[in-house]
Design a protein around this nucleic acid. Structure first.
Lengths: 305, 305
DNA sequence: TTCACCTATCTGAAAATCAGATATAAACTG
DNA sequence: CAGTTTATATCTGATTTTCAGATAGGTGAA
């Protein structure tokens, strides 16, 4: 069974074109490299180098296997680097729960920075239904959450506002409401409202104050979008989801007579006290808090000032 | 420095949830696995298992690193498997040169079979200019070639017909020739012919007998296609390249008055005698020879019978 | 409590690895 | 063409590592 050191000797020798040079670089005797590669060749039952000339030259098989050996070495290095990172207190995995409907576009730069700063931390993003958010954090399924701000959070939760999410009332191109230059409460109540969440029950928090008595629930905003496009009703949906449809004319933004029709929700970062954030989680939280308002404006979640 | 066996002990113990079971599976003593994992933990400076209960349980860090360790093991197994395959005479790499203009669509199924049959052979497909084909095979850059049949091949070359490539004369939508219901030689000679190859010189074989005295050469068929679409002239191009354009109306197929306007070229598989084909190359050649005519018909390279 | 089973550690033996020395061959030099 | 330099293969004895078996301590189930 070849050892990692065998592979290392092979790769170094192939790259340097010399067993002696490889030995020098490994801080070992030349004979060690010679036997290491000989053993590798025995294990493989394949000649890796052509020794007929002064310096060893890769055979065809050796050249083909070199790529594999490099991969193994890379994997081993990554294993150790990741382990070192974790031994220094950096978690190996970070899960962020982003409530459905909150656009990740304002976060893309931040995520890019994360991937380079914490190359050894695997990042997971889940987009649960709003009703699940608390449980997902409580259970430790995610370390950090981004959700539409609420009046109060359960005990044990920390939260800080980090940004905004703009919701826009829309209807399909051919919907009766789409023809009105201004809609009143009374108009809304005459048509079905489509709500992007699972139906609230007694347990799952407040039902919210919906504007229409006729309500359909769908599990996520994309489903609702499809229903709206098909003319099944109107809905208040995140700007990031409906922007395209409004631009192409498939969707029409409703103009509320009774209030500003763009509805601005705050976005909170939420985490639990007992589950202390790791180094990467802390970094992520700090960067979220430092996010300039511009990125929310540029992504259409804040009106231009 | 952890050895492969250390990683193997780690992965097996994690998967079986028991050091003893891992030892049994590895055919070693339990103490070997115990110390192997302990050493790995020392190398990593990270606790991989929680030993507080009867059976060891992965720590968070262990769970994160498990994926990496599995990757290393996979890599090692693949290295050995590939080496074994090569020790049995299968080449590690196969390069096929397919002359520009020959569609690979008839070969897709064949390539799929190849990838499963010769999982350890990396496949390379190059699409050289027709004039380069011979040199590329001679130099060993490619083991096998697919090219439009010629009257004669240089000595040392083997060839067998394997299929067909249909060439269609086309012009752009607004080209004068496009309006003619039938074109004659005289018509063709009044317009520029675009030829998808580098300009033939005295060395690079016959100039062929082009139909028009005014000729532009472009390095590959796609360049020619763009030129034709821009109205710079007419060209005889492979059916696979112009089919879409003809369907959308951007291209018009010319209707030769003097001969069948679809021009059918045979496709030859070509290889050299001195560079013996390996097992994978032989397989590929045999499968090419056995290709049913249907696949050439279905891909528009043979007229429906 | 008893029993079965698991893990950590110790120990001596077996095996592998290593550095140095030596032999041989290839390229280079004059 | 002989001498020099450098590179690789192999041998050898010492060092290190690895291993199996034995032992001890602990956990969980009956």
């Amino acid at each position: 069974m070849p050892s990692i050191e065998n592979y290392r000797a092979f790769v170094l020798a192939a790259e340097l074109g010399s067993f002696s040079a490889a030995a020098r670089q490994m801080g070992k005797a030349q004979s060690a490299v010679s036997t290491a590669i000989a053993n590798l060749e025995i294990d493989c039952d394949v000649l890796l180098f052509d020794r007929s000339s002064r310096n060893p030259v890769l055979t065809k098989a050796g050249a083909a296997l070199l790529a594999n050996a490099k991969g193994i070495l890379l994997g081993s290095q990554e294993f150790l680097a990741r382990a070192k990172s974790m031994s220094e207190g950096v978690e190996g995995h970070l899960c962020i729960a982003i409530e459905q409907g909150i656009s990740i576009r304002p976060l893309l730069d931040l995520l890019g920075d994360f991937s380079t700063t914490f190359a050894h931390v695997s990042l997971e993003i889940v987009t649960p239904d709003p009703a699940d958010m608390a449980g997902i954090l409580k259970r430790g399924r995610a370390e950090l959450g981004l959700m539409i701000e609420q009046e109060g959070y359960p005990v044990g939760f920390q939260f800080r506002g980090v940004g905004y999410s703009r919701t826009v009332p829309v209807a399909g191109r051919d919907h009766p409401l789409a023809r009105l230059s201004q809609v009143r409460h009374a108009d809304l109540r005459q048509h079905r409202e489509l709500v992007p969440q699972i139906r609230p029950t007694a347990q799952t928090g407040s039902p919210g104050n919906r504007k229409s008595p006729s309500i359909w629930y769908a599990e996520n905003p994309m489903l609702v979008l499809d229903l709206v496009l098909q003319g099944f009703g109107w809905a208040e949906l995140p700007h990031s989801i409906v922007a395209d449809g409004i631009k192409t004319g498939d969707l029409v933004q409703l103009n509320y007579g009774f209030q500003q029709s763009d509805i601005l929700h705050g976005v909170d970062a939420v985490w639990t006290e007992q589950r202390a954030l790791g180094v990467a989680g802390q970094w992520m939280l700090n960067r979220l808090l430092e996010l300039p308002q511009d990125v929310w404006r540029e992504t259409g979640n804040l009106p231009a000032s």
